[in-house]
């Protein structure tokens, strides 16, 4: 069971503003999904290695060669608030 307080904590970590109704619904829905997910607990996973990727390769790297960067206009083309050749944001210090 995920309670309201946990929902708010997780929403804060994920930077999602939820209204009261969403918090209620999220609490119920996440709880029921997690109930199902917890059926995994039946399995004996002792000594089983985790799989975080299925590709069986290592050391795939690139040479340290310069590739073309985007022209600055293109880099800033999608910016919600471009200013002085940069991306402007509300100050984190405010």
């Amino acid at each position: 069971m995920i309670d309201r307080k946990q929902v708010l904590h997780v929403a804060r970590l994920a930077r999602l503003r939820l209204d009261d109704e969403e918090v209620e619904r999220m609490s119920a829905e996440l709880s029921s999904i997690l109930d199902h997910v917890e059926t995994m607990a039946e399995l004996d996973i002792e000594g089983v290695e985790p799989t975080s990727r299925v590709v069986d390769a290592e050391n795939v790297m690139r040479a340290d060669d310069v590739a073309a960067s985007l022209p600055r206009d293109a880099a800033l083309a999608n910016a919600p608030d471009p200013a002085s050749g940069s991306f402007r944001v509300p100050s984190p210090q405010a």
Binding site: A75, D81, S84, R88
Partner: peptide
């Protein structure tokens, strides 16, 4: 790199920062 620039244009009176990637 994040540079504090003081007042932002959009939201008057609030502080802003510029990001250079």
């Amino acid at each position: 790199k994040l540079t504090h620039v003081g007042e932002s244009g959009r939201i008057h009176g609030s502080d802003a920062s510029l990001v250079d990637f």
